[in-house]
Amino acid sequence: MAEAILIEGQRAWLKYYGEGSRAFALGLLNLVAHRFGMDALRPPPHRGGEQARDIEARRLAELREQGVNVPAVIGEGRAALLLEHTGDSFNQCMRDADDAGRDRLVKAAMATLADAHARGAYLGQPLPRNMTWDGENVGFLDFEEDPLEVMDLPTAQARDWLMFGYGVAKYYDHRGEVLQDLLIEAMERAQGPVVEQANEVTARLQSLARLLKRAGRSGRVLAQAIFALHAATSLGLVLLTVVCVDWLIDGQVDLLGMLG
């Protein structure tokens, strides 16, 4: 839980860390993800109290070192952190915007996420509710869990795209093709192993997505995210395969020359 406070006229956030919970639900999800080979969906441990505070403080320091826009830690308590204010709720900005405005916000977020990955970073839960917007820059929040406890870096970065795609899909309920095109553009900057992981997970979820399309708005949103991400990562894999084959044939990437 986070509470807005004022310090010398400047807004800040006091975040409290309650006791950890959800052990059964997380264990079940971990079992299912492992059983069906979807490592990117494995949940990291959800701790509470001082442990959660320490994880978030460490992750914030790591991400700031990597040049990612996250809050500075202003102070800390026994099970609390005082965090810098980095902008308005991205979720609220998406709600308030028209279609064109949402597209601009999503493009900015995708570019920021891709840049963070290029710096070797991973976010964990880049959902709109865990992001900020100050009119120019996208920021990220909520780091009390660490995905690298249960997966490697490429898988954690693939998880970021899966989380982000699901998070924004509800704003593209009737514009799925637009979200798909935005994701295709974003995937051009993703590393091969990241694209492969995201593609593998969404491929395994295709049958579920077809069922979810008939399960109300929440189901449609999840299905929309699965289909859009799968299409985007499939194109990325096709291009990657073509480039690799091109290189193996004669040691040159002729395709790049043609495109140039």
Rank of each mutant, 00 (worst) to 15 (best):
E3I: 12
G9C: 09
Y16I: 00
Y17Q: 04
Y17V: 07
G20R: 02
L26Q: 12
G27T: 08
L28T: 08
N30A: 15
N30V: 00
L31S: 09
H34M: 09
F36V: 02
A40T: 08
R42K: 15
R42D: 08
G49L: 10
E50T: 08
A52I: 10
R53E: 15
E56T: 04
A57S: 13
A61Y: 03
E62F: 09
L63N: 06
L63M: 07
V70H: 06
V70R: 03
A72M: 07
E76L: 02
E76V: 00
A79T: 06
A79I: 00
L82P: 07
L83P: 09
T86M: 11
N91Q: 15
Q92K: 10
M94N: 13
D96R: 14
D99F: 02
R102E: 02
D103P: 00
L113C: 06
R119Y: 04
G120F: 00
G120T: 00
L123E: 08
Q125L: 03
Q125P: 06
L127G: 04
R129G: 04
M131W: 05
T132H: 00
D134L: 07
D142W: 01
D142A: 01
E145C: 09
V150T: 08
L153D: 08
L153A: 11
L153F: 06
R159H: 07
F164S: 10
Y166L: 14
Y166R: 03
R175K: 10
G176I: 07
V178Y: 04
L183V: 06
I184E: 15
M187C: 15
M187K: 02
R189V: 04
R189H: 12
A190I: 00
E196W: 13
A198Y: 03
N199K: 05
V201N: 03
V201P: 04
A203I: 06
R204K: 15
Q206H: 12
R217D: 14
R220V: 07
V221S: 11
V221Q: 13
A223H: 10
Q224H: 14
A231V: 01
A232D: 10
A232I: 01
T233Y: 05
T233E: 04
S234F: 13
V245P: 02
V245K: 06
D246L: 04
D250P: 03
Q252S: 05
D254A: 11
D254P: 00
L255Y: 12
G257D: 13
L259P: 01
